[in-house]
Each structure stands twice: as structure tokens, then as C-alpha cells.
Design a protein around this nucleic acid. Structure first.
Length: 480
RNA sequence: GGCGGCGUAGCCAAGUGGCUAAGGCAGAGGUCUGCAAAACCUCCAUCAUCGGUUCAAUUCCGAUCGCCGCCUCCA
């Protein structure tokens, strides 16, 4: 029983064997911080979050590095390409680094809200210019790059394995009619390592080739090497970045170091919105700040993780609503379980076995290339076991309840992050008032004044408080 | 045009060469309850189409139709 992962590099599922026993080095392509994060970012980073959390659950110490791209990401590859951050800065009349600060903060605010674990290190491209220049020097020294008019290009013909990740071949790329080929490029697939900056360009650094700035792909190579070493375990990212971004990372890193770059490549698929590609130009982008006003973070996570990470996920309001409702069941079970434990439990056995079985099913599913969908199925089945046990006349033994609690906390909570921990009610006055109201309503019910009792319940409902009559007691809670 | 992926119940979505095709949402019936809520029980699919391989295919192969991604920036 061990972890198997689908490696884009080999197009097969492989046993995960880390470079160093007990340690996993993970690099994931981060955002370009020129706008707020959208639901597509959430799919990638929630999926990768589950990967990282599961590795930790499995006993690995994980060093998770995720770059923040704040320079060099062009709007397109032709001569007319603009730096995305610079473009935004010009539009908003801000310093580029103000744009970067704003959207970096916004990104982490959204990721925190979604309970995505912070990376161990979140380095910025602009903070690693020397490291990037160093790689360019190595590539030039090895003849794998060439300088032309103050810019430096990677020479793809000098890296025979070019295309091994994406399955592309150079002759096909050449045939692919790219309309505007940079005349300085020797081969259409050659890519920028360093770009000469015009005098008015606001983001530029000195280099052996004059003032300029690094190419987009280079930052990942430089920062992965700096924080994880020349060879590391897992490189994650969006499927749309396989080519050219990841392919170019491999080319420049391996050509420079002579060593393998990432050993396992995990690619998270894209999503569609109501069946169509999401794009800002299409006007159907869903920003996380807006989505989080409609759905809970746990529901968004459940929705994303209900699909395998390599599958396309279609986003609709209905699907997210369904996830929210489904999550409520999990939340109810978790609450009932905790309440029963607080009361001390009973004598009945059996729940411990269910907990062990659920944990086993969960682990088997996650070991199989992080099959969160099957893992969630195991959790929901386990919820049924728990609910049945709690509803039966014989209350489960305390030890069994605690086993169940631990299993649920570790799987649904620690790994998937879909367990909602409810804030305890701290207002003494509120509690006292609710006690009075509930006692009053109980008296009305005893007197068979049902109309009045129901009015009371409806009024509380209007105020956001739900009542639940159970045998012998009534409990209340704020509506989620 | 090149490369890759997908098509499973009303919706979302796992999975397997043969044993009851997970799970969630919605729906139907029932239990419990004064009612409601919650919870539990029961019911609800032959896996796009056509052909092939096989003792046996939803699962493998081929074709067709439809959808999507990448090849130019997007996570």
C-alpha cells in the first residue's frame, strides 16, 4: 500500500518514491499577480493543497515552494508582448510593485479563506534576478543559448529532449504556422531567457547583456533550484502550462545543470463555466471574492475535490449549491458526533470498526493518484455509519466515538479541509435568552399551544436561528 | 492542420474485462415527530453510437458523432 501518482512525463501512474526518504520537495507554479484570483486558481491550488496535505498525512515532511510571478510574464510572445504587471500598472497609474503588493495580498487572502495551506516558501521572480542571470550564464557557456541584440534566447535545437513533457516535436512546432516569429530567433520554438528593455520600461535590471528583464519561464527554474535543488520530487501546475511553460522550464534547467529537473509532474486540469472555457475576455470569469459571498469555503473545496484533479470541472451555480447542501450533511454529522462525545457516550460497540474501515478506504483512494472523489465517497458512507450509530437506542462507547472523531478529523479535516469547525457560542446573554425562549416554547408545546410555539420557531428562523426538537430537548444554532 | 483528453442516472461525479456500476444533489415512498427540521430505511442507470477482439466489455481496439484543452496570454 503506497502512493501512486500519474506522471505527465511518462504518461503513466508510478509509485511515488521520493529522492530522500520521508521528505517531499514540491514546486507549484504560482499566480501572476496582476488581478484578483478566480475560481480557476481555486481549482489548481485547492487540488494541490490536497496533494500537499495528503503527503503530510502520509508522514512526509513537505517543503512546498510556490512562486509569485511579478515580472516577465508577457501578454503574448510576439514583439508586441507587454509585461502583464507593467500593463496593469500603467492602466491604474501605479508603480508595478504596488500592483504586485495589492494582488499578492489579495491572492493569499482568498487562499486563506479557502483554507489552502500557505506554501513553505513563496518567492518572487523579481527577488531572484541574480539566480536567473546565473542560469543564463551557464546556458551561454554550454552553448545552449545565444545573445541577439541585448536579448538572450534558449536554443531548443541544443536540447535533444525538448518536447518530452508535452509530446511535441520540433519539426511539428516549426510547421505550426506561428504568424509573427521574432526575427532574432534562430528557431521558432526558441524562447526568451532575457529580454532587452527599452529605456522607458519601468521594470528592468542590469545584466551582462545590458538592461532588461528575465523571461517568464526562467523564474521557476531559478527558484526551484535555489529552494529545492537541481533535482526535486514533484512539480505541480495547471495543464495549460505544460506547453510551453513547463517544457521550457525543463529545457533550461536540465541544459544548465545536466541533471534531471522535476521527477514527477502533476497537472491539474482546467475548468469550464457552464460548459464553456472561462476567460476574462468571455466575461464569464468567476472571482473568488464574489464566490465566497455565495458559498462557504468548505463547500467550494468539496465541489472542487469531488472531481479528480486531472478531470475537467464544470462550474455552475447548481453544482455549487449541491455541494453546499452535501457539506451540510457532513457538518451535521460532525456536530452530532461532538455533542454525543461531550455527553459521554454509552456502551454499544461497532463504530471503531467503521472508523477503521473508513480510514482504510480513504487511504486506498488517496494513494491512487489522489482520488479525492472516491475518498469523499468513503467519508460520506462513514457519516452514514456514524449517524446510524448515534440514532440507535444504544449510544456508542466513548472510545469508539473518539475513534470516529479522530478518523473524521484527519480525513475530512486535515487532508481535505472540508470539515467545518463551528465557533462555540460565547455570548452568555444570547445563551441565557435562548434558554428562556426555548423553555417558554416548551411550555407552550406542553400546553398544546402549537400555533404559538410554531410562530416562535418561525420568528427565530427569520432572525437566523434554527431550532431542532429532539427527544427530550430542543437545541438551537445560528444558520450557516 | 498537429498533439491530448472527455462523453456513466434529471444534475455533479468515481470506477471496473465477469461478482450489487461509488458518493453527493434533486425526486418518490416509509420510520421518527403535535408539526417541522435533522437522521435513518427503501426505490431511481445496462455506462454516446456502430463494429471488432474475448467464453465474457461500460471497461481493450477501430470508426463515427458530440464536447473540451493545448499548439499565442490565461491557473
Amino acid at each position: 500500500m503506497s502512493l501512486r501518482v500519474y506522471n505527465t512525463l511518462t504518461r503513466t501512474k508510478e509509485d511515488f518514491v521520493p529522492l530522500t526518504a520521508g521528505f517531499a520537495g514540491v514546486y507549484c507554479c504560482g499566480p501572476t499577480v496582476y488581478d484578483h484570483a478566480h475560481i480557476g486558481h481555486a481549482k489548481l491550488y485547492v487540488a494541490m493543497d490536497a496533494v500537499v496535505r495528503y503527503l503530510r498525512f502520509s508522514g512526509y515532511r513537505v517543503k512546498h515552494v510556490m512562486n509569485i510571478t511579478d515580472v516577465g510574464h508577457l501578454t503574448d510572445d510576439a514583439d508586441a508582448g507587454e509585461d502583464k504587471v507593467a500593463k496593469r500598472a500603467a492602466a491604474e497609474r501605479l508603480d508595478p510593485m504596488e500592483v504586485v503588493e495589492t494582488y499578492t495580498a489579495s491572492f493569499f487572502q482568498d487562499m486563506d479563506a479557502l483554507k489552502v495551506c500557505r506554501p513553505s516558501i513563496a518567492p518572487r521572480a523579481s527577488g531572484h534576478i541574480p539566480e536567473q542571470i546565473e542560469i543564463i550564464k551557464q546556458l551561454l557557456a554550454k552553448g545552449a543559448a545565444y545573445e541577439a541584440d541585448g536579448s538572450v534566447y534558449f536554443d531548443v535545437t541544443k536540447f535533444p529532449e525538448y518536447g518530452k513533457l508535452s509530446g511535441r516535436r520540433l519539426d511539428e512546432l516549426e510547421a505550426g504556422a506561428r504568424v509573427e516569429v521574432d526575427p532574432d530567433k534562430r528557431h521558432p520554438a526558441d524562447f526568451l531567457l532575457w529580454r532587452k528593455a527599452s529605456p522607458e520600461h519601468i521594470l528592468q535590471w542590469p545584466s551582462p547583456w545590458g538592461w532588461g528583464y528575465p523571461g517568464w519561464h526562467l523564474e521557476c527554474s531559478a527558484m526551484a533550484k535555489r529552494y529545492l535543488g537541481e533535482t526535486f520530487d514533484i512539480h505541480g501546475g495547471g495543464l495549460e502550462n505544460v506547453f510551453p511553460h513547463n517544457e521550457d522550464e525543463i529545457a533550461q534547467s536540465e541544459a544548465a545543470s545536466g541533471a534531471q529537473f522535476a521527477r514527477y509532474w502533476l497537472h491539474v486540469n482546467t475548468l469550464t463555466v457552464a460548459g464553456k472555457k472561462m476567460g476574462k475576455s468571455l466575461g464569464n470569469a468567476i472571482f473568488l471574492k464574489e464566490a465566497l459571498t455565495k458559498w462557504s469555503p468548505e463547500a467550494i473545496r468539496l465541489f472542487i475535490l469531488s472531481t479528480h484533479y486531472r478531470s475537467v470541472l464544470d462550474v455552475t451555480d447548481e453544482a455549487l449549491d449541491a455541494a453546499e447542501t452535501g457539506l451540510k450533511r457532513l457538518t451535521n454529522t460532525w456536530r452530532s458526533l461532538n455533542e454525543t462525545i461531550a455527553r459521554g457516550g454509552g456502551e454499544a460497540a461497532g463504530l471503531a470498526e467503521a472508523a477503521a474501515a473508513a480510514r482504510e478506504r480513504f487511504t486506498v483512494a488517496m494513494d491512487d493518484d489522489f482520488n479525492t472523489s472516491a475518498a469523499i465517497a468513503a467519508i460520506f458512507d462513514f457519516c452514514r455509519d456514524i449517524n446510524s450509530a448515534l440514532a440507535s437506542d444504544a449510544a456508542p462507547a466513548l472510545g469508539d466515538l473518539q475513534r470516529a472523531q479522530q478518523a473524521l478529523r484527519e480525513t475530512a479535516g486535515d487532508v481535505l479541509g472540508i470539515l467545518r469547525e463551528e465557533a462555540g457560542e460565547t455570548g452568555d446573554l444570547t445563551s441565557s435568552l435562548m434558554d428562556i425562549i426555548i423553555r417558554t416554547r416548551a411550555n407552550l408545546r406542553s400546553a398544546k399551544q402549537y400555533q404559538l410555539a410554531d410562530d416562535l420557531r418561525d420568528s427565530l428562523g427569520g432572525a437566523g436561528i434554527e431550532l431542532e426538537d429532539r427527544p427530550g430537548e430542543t437545541v438551537w444554532r445560528r444558520r450557516e
